[in-house]
Simulated scan of single mutants.
Amino acid sequence: MAEDYAYRLTKDLRDQSQKPTDERLQNWVLHELQAMLSSHSMILEDFNLPIPSDSSYDNGENPLINEHLAFDTDQQHALATSMLHSLNLEQTNVYSAVINSVHNKMGRAFFIYGHRGTGKTYLYNVITARLRSLGKIVVLVASSGIAATLLPKATTAHSRFKIPLILDATSTCPIKHGTHLADMLKEASLIIWDETPMTHRQAFEAVDRSLCDILNVPLTGHHYKPFGEKTVLFGGDFRQTLPVITDAGREQTIDGSLTRSKLWNTFKVMCLSTNMRITAVQPADQQLMHGYRFP
Score class of each variant (00 low, 15 high):
41 S>R: 08
246 T>W: 11
29 V>R: 04
151 L>T: 05
102 V>F: 06
231 T>H: 13
173 C>A: 10
3 E>Y: 03
188 A>F: 04
248 A>V: 07
26 Q>R: 15
170 T>G: 14
174 P>S: 00
154 A>N: 06
112 I>P: 03
16 Q>K: 14
47 F>S: 01
146 I>N: 12
143 S>Y: 07
174 P>C: 00
258 L>C: 11
103 H>P: 10
168 D>C: 13
270 M>K: 10
232 V>L: 05
20 P>G: 04
220 T>H: 10
230 K>V: 00
55 S>M: 15
35 A>W: 04
291 G>L: 01
114 G>E: 01
187 E>I: 05
293 R>I: 12
152 P>G: 03
274 T>A: 11
226 P>N: 13
29 V>K: 08
153 K>A: 09
81 T>S: 09
35 A>T: 11
58 D>Y: 04
126 V>I: 07
48 N>Q: 03
43 I>M: 08
268 K>Q: 15
104 N>L: 14
149 T>H: 01
216 N>G: 02
243 P>I: 10
282 Q>Y: 10
252 Q>D: 08
203 A>E: 06
286 Q>K: 15
48 N>C: 00
52 P>K: 08
60 G>C: 03
102 V>D: 05
46 D>Q: 00
58 D>E: 09
278 I>D: 03
138 V>G: 05
266 T>I: 07
122 Y>Q: 02
278 I>S: 10
72 D>A: 04
257 S>D: 14
276 M>T: 05
275 N>F: 00
25 L>S: 02
294 F>R: 09
24 R>E: 14
3 E>W: 06
94 V>Y: 02
241 T>M: 15
57 Y>Q: 11
162 K>V: 02
173 C>T: 05
201 R>V: 06
110 F>Q: 08
3 E>Q: 07
55 S>E: 15
129 A>Q: 11
180 H>N: 03
254 I>W: 08
233 L>R: 03
43 I>G: 07
109 A>Y: 08
193 W>E: 06
287 Q>L: 14
91 Q>L: 04
240 Q>N: 09
80 A>L: 01
193 W>M: 03
31 H>M: 00
246 T>A: 13
194 D>P: 06
124 Y>D: 01
127 I>K: 01
62 N>P: 13
195 E>P: 10
190 L>D: 01
207 V>G: 06
212 C>Y: 03
250 R>G: 08
